[in-house]
Amino acid sequence: MRKNSTMKNRTPKSVNRGRVAVVTGGLVAALALGSTAAFAAGAGHEAAPVSAVAAAPAASSVSDVLQKQVTGQKDAAAQAKAKAEAAAKAAAEAKKEAAAKAAADRKARIAGWMTPTPHYVLGAGYAQVGVHWAHTHSGQDFVVPTGSTVRAAHTGTVVTAGWGGAYGNNIVIQHGSQLYTQYGHLSHIEVHVGEQVITGQEIGKSGSTGNSTGPHLHFEVRTTPYYGSSVEPLHFLRAHGVNP
């Protein structure tokens, strides 16, 4: 009887082996599942830093672009300012040079000589003989219409301005010791005695007053302010750089 009971309670070896296989398989499956979950969890934790790293360069790139734009704008503004300052400096220098040239030209003109009227035809000459003069002609006539500009042939001081008998309305200018010029037959006088005039300054208008047969300017170069001291005016002007 005991023998039979023992036999009933015994489990066949094949069954035990099957149970071991099942348990082992379960453990393996559990381990595999755990590993997979752990990997998935680990992967999830590592994904965040990858996204952050990817986002950081993007933000840095935008910042760099903005910084470059700001820098470019500053550089452009600096260049524009430099150009404006250079242009202003050049304009100031050009203006200064022009003023200096004008002053030099004026100084040269004041120091120089010119014809007593700008547009003319040469008429009766110096020492010419004729019925219109008591002796010979004492000056050079510049034939011009009445009202033409009469200008100082050289810088000086007015010593006569008014009626001059045969010369009609006339002006005499002193230019230095023993050097005078005279302008006769004027229709209008624009200066007064004692006035300082410069080369080229308008002093009156041409006419035909006094002993005159028609509109013209009578011009003399003298060694005194009076009649009888004249010299050949065209020769004098040519000697001083003027070609009438």
Rank of each mutant, 00 (worst) to 15 (best):
T117P: 00
A152I: 10
S230Q: 12
A124S: 12
E85Q: 15
V242E: 00
S229C: 03
I171Y: 09
F219Y: 06
K101E: 08
W113H: 07
R106E: 09
A58C: 02
T209D: 02
V231K: 08
L33F: 10
T157G: 05
G194H: 03
S63F: 07
D105I: 04
P215H: 08
V197P: 07
S229H: 05
A92C: 05
K107Q: 10
P233K: 06
G139N: 01
R2I: 14
G184Q: 04
G241W: 11
Q73K: 13
V28T: 06
V221M: 00
V242R: 00
A41G: 11
Q69T: 15
A59M: 07
A90Q: 14
A52H: 12
A152E: 08
I173Q: 12
F39V: 09
H216F: 01
V242W: 02
S14K: 12
L27T: 09
E220S: 03
A48N: 14
H216P: 00
P233E: 00
V143D: 01
P49E: 07
E220K: 05
A48K: 15
R222E: 02
A134E: 06
T224N: 03
A55G: 04
S51N: 13
V20L: 11
E97H: 06
R17K: 09
L237S: 02
A30W: 15
E232A: 13
Y120V: 00
G139S: 00
S138M: 06
E202C: 05
A54T: 04
D105N: 11
A98T: 13
V62M: 11
A29I: 08
V172I: 15
A166W: 12
Y227G: 10
G200C: 02
G194A: 04
L31G: 10
V70Y: 13
I198F: 15
G130W: 05
V159L: 04
V191M: 09
K83V: 14
W133T: 06
A37V: 13
P145F: 01
T36I: 08
I173Y: 09
N170A: 08
A37C: 06
V231L: 02
K205W: 05
V221C: 01
A80K: 12
A94K: 10
S63P: 03
A48H: 15
Y167E: 05
H135W: 14
V20N: 07
V28L: 08
G200S: 02
K74A: 15
E97V: 11
S60F: 06
S51E: 13
Y180P: 02
G162R: 10
M114K: 10
A134N: 13
G194F: 04
L33S: 12
A134T: 13
Y167K: 05
A76V: 12
A80G: 05
G241N: 04
G26S: 10
L179C: 01
V221D: 00
A92W: 08
G147D: 02
A21R: 15
L122Q: 06
G72S: 14
H119D: 07
M114E: 13
G207F: 02
T117E: 01
R238L: 07
A239V: 10
V131M: 08
Q196I: 10
G18I: 07
V15S: 03
V158F: 09
R151G: 01
